[in-house]
Amino acid sequence: MELTFGQYELVYNAFSLGIAAFLAATLFFWLGLSQVSDKYKMAVVVTGLVTFIAGYHYLRMFDSWGDAYTAVDGVVTSTGVAFNVAYRYVDWFLTVPLLLIELILVMSLTRSETVRKAILLGGAAALMIALGYPGEVSGGIDSTRLLWGALSMIPFLYIVYTLFIGLSESIARQHENVRGLLNTARWILVLSWSFYPVVYFAPFVMSLDGGQAQTVIEVGYTVADLVAKVVFGVIIFMIAVRKSQNEKA
């Protein structure tokens, strides 16, 4: 695959930004545990775990990108070593279910409701990632990618339905000063996740291939990851802090 120097640098710097943002967010969440009550500590621990896992996998992708290409005097050359896209999907397979569990844990649902929703939503999220992977590694922008991408949209739509219909009553029961944050959290989650299929199908719809497709996919996924994990995580942390303050008051 041929890349221009600009495309190579854009992906390289996007991975670098991801590493810094995810690891900094992990420190922020875990060092802030003292600001939340015991009831919400697990939600914040999981939030930091998500960004830690993402930071690790972005470090591996950063190294894999450097192994796959060399840039000398503005000329990018393929080394013959394949860029490992599996790192991203392993990351998603672990972190995407945990993102939903973060939201569930911070809502203070009953134990049975927490377990049920965690299993259903977490399972749907894992299935969504598993179905998208064959299309990502199919080796081209073709009908195979389109088919598996369409299949992965089925559990995604179930998750969206559950977040906006299944959790509406539970959110309505929350304290008024966290209700808005919970609504913001689910909107951020749904909108950022909606960006993934946009990136997934973009090369197909726009007839991109080679370096253009690779750049759009890697940079697009990185932007979506930063919003879905760092920005969403900050909202979860704010909810945990505010709920802790409410209980003390």
Score class of each variant (00 low, 15 high):
residue 198 V to D: 02
residue 187 W to V: 12
residue 126 A to D: 01
residue 139 G to R: 09
residue 149 G to M: 02
residue 188 I to F: 14
residue 127 L to V: 09
residue 116 R to S: 14
residue 136 E to N: 08
residue 167 L to K: 07
residue 159 I to W: 05
residue 152 S to M: 14
residue 192 S to D: 12
residue 137 V to A: 02
residue 114 T to H: 08
residue 203 P to G: 14
residue 142 D to V: 03
residue 160 V to D: 11
residue 152 S to N: 09
residue 127 L to P: 01
residue 173 R to C: 00
residue 143 S to H: 06
residue 104 I to Y: 07
residue 126 A to S: 07
residue 125 A to E: 09
residue 105 L to M: 07
residue 99 L to F: 02
residue 185 A to W: 09
residue 132 G to E: 09
residue 188 I to G: 09
residue 209 D to R: 13
residue 181 L to D: 15
residue 138 S to F: 02
residue 111 R to P: 00
residue 143 S to N: 08
residue 193 W to V: 01
residue 102 E to G: 06
residue 106 V to D: 06
residue 181 L to R: 15
residue 194 S to N: 05
residue 180 G to E: 10
residue 184 T to K: 14
residue 200 Y to A: 04
residue 164 F to H: 10
residue 154 I to R: 06
residue 131 L to R: 01
residue 153 M to G: 06
residue 155 P to A: 03
residue 211 G to Q: 08
residue 207 S to Q: 14
residue 177 N to W: 12
residue 136 E to Y: 06
residue 128 M to I: 01
residue 152 S to L: 05
residue 173 R to N: 10
residue 98 L to Y: 07
residue 161 Y to C: 07
residue 111 R to C: 02
residue 196 Y to H: 10
residue 181 L to A: 14
residue 168 S to K: 15
residue 158 Y to G: 04
residue 107 M to L: 05
residue 189 L to F: 13
residue 138 S to Y: 04
residue 186 R to M: 14
residue 157 L to A: 13
residue 128 M to R: 01
residue 138 S to I: 01
residue 183 N to L: 14
residue 201 F to A: 14
residue 195 F to P: 00
residue 140 G to V: 01
residue 136 E to W: 04
residue 174 Q to E: 12
residue 120 L to C: 02
residue 120 L to W: 13
residue 107 M to F: 03
residue 182 L to V: 10
residue 127 L to W: 03
residue 120 L to P: 00
residue 186 R to V: 11
residue 207 S to E: 15
residue 113 E to A: 15
residue 99 L to A: 03
residue 149 G to D: 00
residue 174 Q to S: 10
residue 178 V to E: 11
residue 158 Y to K: 04
residue 205 V to F: 12
residue 179 R to M: 14
residue 130 A to Q: 03
residue 125 A to H: 09
residue 184 T to L: 15
residue 112 S to A: 10
residue 173 R to E: 14
residue 151 L to T: 01
residue 142 D to P: 00
residue 191 L to C: 10
residue 195 F to A: 14
residue 198 V to W: 01
residue 175 H to F: 05
residue 185 A to C: 10
residue 143 S to A: 09
